[in-house]
Design a protein around this nucleic acid. Structure first.
Lengths: 186, 186
DNA sequence: TGTACATCAGTGAACGCGCGTTCACTGATGTAC
DNA sequence: TGTACATCAGTGAACGCGCGTTCACTGATGTAC
């Protein structure tokens, strides 16, 4: 049965929210339309009243997730600096819960294999993300880009090693995180 | 029909070699047993005379691929230093051809979602890889781990942005690659 | 404001398809004598 | 060295399953009068 406009809008948000978490947790190929719809309280049939395809949802979800996390990250950086952000980024809490964390680390590897629509949405998200954490034009732009690349690389490695070589994961994390030379300034 | 021992052994190598390329190109969920078998010159039925499951193949392939690339990388570093390695790692040739490149960048994101068997094999490969590029015990170990993390993060980002924001991809690459402070020493 | 009705969000069965895996079978291999 | 035969690598059909997507249908919504 038809639902009112607010309900429809809330359902769309629920789909995006469920997709955001599930995609980061399982990867693009690891989660299906039916499961995302169910997590949002719909059946898979209803899904197609909101998005023309899974690809469209993935694009919209990735872009929005990056925008949201960029905003959150930006707050941390503004308040406590990039050093504090690095610490949070490589915290056990973040590494253990990819579903709620940075989409660049969780989905970056998948993005190289997606179609144009998803890639374009991803690029917009990355620009927003890097735009707030390493603002273009600033003299420290390149330096910050390098730090962010190290954070992402370390998170990817640490998550892959979690549970099978925690000592090595910890060593990588502390090499990237606790380097005073790299993360002290600002 | 049965084949002789050398043929069997060659077929196993062909499976591992095909898997190595296809997995890096498409990801673990993006390629199937049938396609890998076909690329190796077998039908999917024959596959199971070599590996008990897809998971077993993925584990063996990832571990071997990391060992091989570690050896190659080690040669570059020994001859020209980590600075030269970084340059090669972030070259257009490497970024454009994940199927022949570093498995950490191509498959790192997938590894966090694999089962224990694959993760354990992955961890052995990573230890070998990092063992040659950032030998444990050396005073520059942490420094080198950080550089490698930055290389991997930059490669993941640049590949995701390729074709949709090449300018940003290039900026990230040059921020990580051409930083004389970070990569000049040795 | 009240009514008649076109719209359309959501349901759930069904579609074709590719997945990982199994299995009966074939016939060359390699061993036992 | 020659022969008889058990082994087993590889084939291709078949399995159950889940995927993304479509579709006929339902009935509440919201608009036209």
């Amino acid at each position: 049965m038809k639902v009112d406009k607010e309900t429809k809008s809330a359902n769309r948000e629920a789909l995006l929210s469920a997709a955001s978490r599930l995609l980061r947790e399982r990867g693009v190929d690891g989660v299906g339309v039916a499961e995302i719809s169910q997590a949002a309280g719909l059946t898979h049939g209803g899904f197609y009243r909101h998005f023309p395809s899974k690809e469209a949802l993935v694009g919209a979800s990735v872009e929005r997730t990056l925008m949201e996390t960029a905003e959150r990250a930006s707050g941390v950086v503004a308040e406590d600096g990039l050093d504090a952000f690095a610490h949070t980024y490589l915290s056990a809490a973040h590494l253990k819960d990819p579903a709620a964390g940075c989409a660049l680390a969780a989905l970056g590897g998948d993005m190289a294999r997606q179609g144009g629509e998803v890639r374009a949405a991803y690029a917009r998200g990355v620009r927003a993300y890097l735009g707030t954490l390493a603002p273009p034009g600033r003299p420290d732009r390149a330096d910050n880009l390098k730090k962010l690349a190290a954070l992402i690389g370390a998170a990817v490695l640490a998550r892959g090693l979690a549970g099978v070589d925690d000592a090595l994961a910890a060593e990588i994390v502390s090499a990237v995180r606790e380097d005073r030379q790299a993360f002290k300034r600002d």
